[in-house]
Design a protein around this nucleic acid. Structure first.
Lengths: 211, 211
DNA sequence: GTTGCGATGTATCGGCCCGATACATCGCAC
DNA sequence: GTGCGATGTATCGGGCCGATACATCGCAAC
C-alpha cells in the first residue's frame, strides 16, 4: 500500500524522504497519522532496487535556491515506476478494500478511470456492508451476553458502518451520473454547497468482466 | 494489544485457539474483522512461555459432552496471567489510544476502575481531537492544492472525527456522573432509550498523579 | 458405501509496518 | 556561544497479516 502511495506522490514531483513523509501525512491524514521512517526508508530502498524509482544524492548540483541543505537524497519515479503505478492503480485485490488500501486508492481517484473507481467503491461498500451485518448479528443474537460497554462499542461501530455505506452510495451515484464527488455532507454546514462539476462523462463503463 | 485481549477472554473461561478466535471476532468486530492464526498461535506460545497461560492437551480427560473432538489444546489463564492482565488494564501508554488499543481496552471497561476508564476516554479524545485539528488545517490551508477526491476523503474523515469526539464526550459525562454507558445514539432510533443505570459511584476519582 | 465438501482445528513462513533509537546538520533565539 | 527545535537519513526488534499446509469430523449427495 505504501508502495502505491509513494509512487503516486513521486509522480507529481521528485522528493526526498522527509518531504515525502510530510506529504504522505497531509494526503493520507485520514488513514494514518504519519508513516514511520522505519517503514519509509526500507520501502524506498525496495522500490529503488526494483527499479521503480531512482535515488539522486545531490552535491550542489544546482546552486541551492533556498539554503544549502545537507546531503539529501532526492527520489524520482522512473518510466517503469510509472507503469507499475498504473498497474497498481487499476488492479484491485482484497487489500484494496480495507481502510488503508481504500484510502490510498481513493486519494488517487482523479488519476483512475471511472470503471475502476466504480469497482473499488462497490468493493469497499461490500466490505463495509459485511462488517455491518456482522455487527447487527452480534447485537441481535449475542447482545444480551455482552456487557454494557462492549455493546456500546458495537453500536458505535455499527453507526459508523451505516454512515460510511451511505457515503459510498452517494459517491457511487455521483460516479454513475458522471459528476465529481460532491456529497452533501450535512456534517459541516459550511463549505457544503459548492456545486462541484468537472470530470467529463468518459466512456460509459466498459463492463468489467473479470477483476 | 492481542495479549491483553487474549488474557481478558481467558479470564472469562478457558478456551482453545479456534474458539478464542471466534470470540475475539465477535467482541472486537468493530476493531478488526478477525484475528489471523498467523498471529494468534505465536502469541499463545509467547504467553505460555511467559507463564501467563497454561496449555492443556486433553486426551479424553472428560468423556466428551458433545462429540469426541480431535486433539485440541485448551488454554487457561494462570495466577500470574491475571496479574499481568490487571497491569495491562490499568496502565495506559500511547498505544492505548489508537484504534485497536482503545477498542480492546474499551471492551474490558466493565473490569476497569473508573479513574482508568476516564483517563483512557480522555486520552482517546485528545488523540482524535489532534487528528481532527490536523484535518481542519489541511482543509483550510492546503484545501485548494488538493483534488476533489482527496478533499472529499478529508471531509469524510473530519466528519468521523467530530462524531467520535461527541461520542467520547457523552461517555465521559456519563462516567463522571456515575452512569453506565447509555449514549442517546440518534443513529439507530430503536434500542436507544433504555434508561441503563448500574455502576455504583465508586471512589471519587483517586487523582492519578503519574501514568 | 463412498466420495467429497465444509466446518473444525493447529501450525509455519515471508513480508509489511511500527515505535524506539541513533546520529548529524542547520537556523535562530537567548 | 550555546542550546534547542526543525530537518534529515538510517537501523533494529517485534507485532501482525495473508497464504499455505495439513488433519479430522459430520453430513449429504450420488
Amino acid at each position: 500500500m505504501l508502495e502505491l502511495a509513494i509512487l503516486g506522490l513521486l509522480q507529481e514531483a521528485p522528493m526526498h524522504g522527509y518531504e515525502l513523509r510530510k506529504e504522505l501525512a497531509t494526503k493520507l491524514g485520514t488513514i494514518r497519522a504519519a508513516i514511520s521512517y522505519g517503514t519509509l526508508y526500507p520501502t524506498l530502498k525496495r522500490l529503488h532496487s526494483a527499479g521503480w524509482i531512482s535515488e539522486q544524492a545531490p552535491e550542489t548540483d544546482i546552486v541551492p535556491p533556498m539554503t544549502s541543505k545537507r546531503g539529501r537524497i532526492v527520489y524520482k519515479i522512473t518510466a517503469e515506476g510509472k507503469e507499475r503505478f498504473a498497474d497498481l492503480l487499476a488492479q484491485a485485490g482484497p487489500e484494496t478494500y480495507d481502510d488503508a488500501g481504500f484510502g490510498v486508492h481513493f486519494t488517487f481517484f482523479s488519476r483512475t478511470d471511472r470503471a475502476t473507481r466504480l469497482r473499488i467503491l462497490e468493493g469497499r461498500r461490500r466490505r463495509i456492508e459485511e462488517r455491518r451485518e456482522g455487527l447487527r448479528d452480534v447485537l441481535a443474537r449475542a447482545g444480551d451476553r455482552l456487557d454494557a460497554y462492549t455493546l456500546e462499542l458495537q453500536r458505535h461501530g455499527l453507526d459508523a458502518c451505516e454512515r460510511e455505506v451511505r457515503w459510498l452510495e452517494e459517491l457511487i451515484t455521483n460516479e454513475r451520473s458522471g459528476r465529481a464527488p460532491s456529497v452533501a455532507t450535512g456534517g459541516t454546514p459550511d463549505s457544503a454547497a459548492e456545486p462541484v462539476v468537472e470530470a467529463p462523462p468518459e466512456e460509459p463503463a466498459p463492463h468489467q468482466d473479470r477483476p
